[in-house]
């Protein structure tokens, strides 16, 4: 059982796939810049900003899951990493809520 885990760990994506991901990342970055420039030409912020955030999350996940091959690796690495990311979002989210929302609703 330990052996199969070890083999699985070393099943990395190939060079072709790496290049594909790289091209996708480049295109997404280009898209981000185009979105940003479109704000001046009337793109609504309520559309553009969520789109920017979604693009960022997609880029983040592409690098994490393929370049850092978390998708193919031992699940323990996935846990350690996403516990860190999740905890950061949770606690700093609470801090942000405390700073922004609290004063606005009259506390």
């Amino acid at each position: 059982m330990a052996d199969t885990e070890y083999d699985k760990e070393h099943a990395h994506p190939g060079v072709g796939q790496y290049v594909e991901i790289g091209v996708i990342l480049a295109v997404m970055t280009l898209l981000e810049v185009i979105l940003f420039e479109s704000f001046d030409r009337g793109l609504l912020k309520s559309v553009g900003i969520p789109a920017l955030i979604i693009l960022t999350i997609l880029k983040f996940m592409l690098v994490v899951l393929w370049f850092m091959h978390l998708r193919f690796d031992h699940k323990l690495f996935r846990r350690v990493f996403f516990v860190g990311v999740g905890l950061a979002f949770l606690v700093f989210g609470i801090v942000a809520v405390n700073f922004y929302v609290g004063p606005r609703i009259g506390f």
């Binding site: 981000e32 979105l35 940003f36 912020k45 920017l52 955030i53 983040f60």
Partner: peptide
């Protein structure tokens, strides 16, 4: 990747 959007693009746009 996060800094680019969150630090540069969104604040500059908003």
């Amino acid at each position: 990747i996060i800094i680019f959007t969150v630090v540069y693009l969104i604040p500059a746009a908003t």
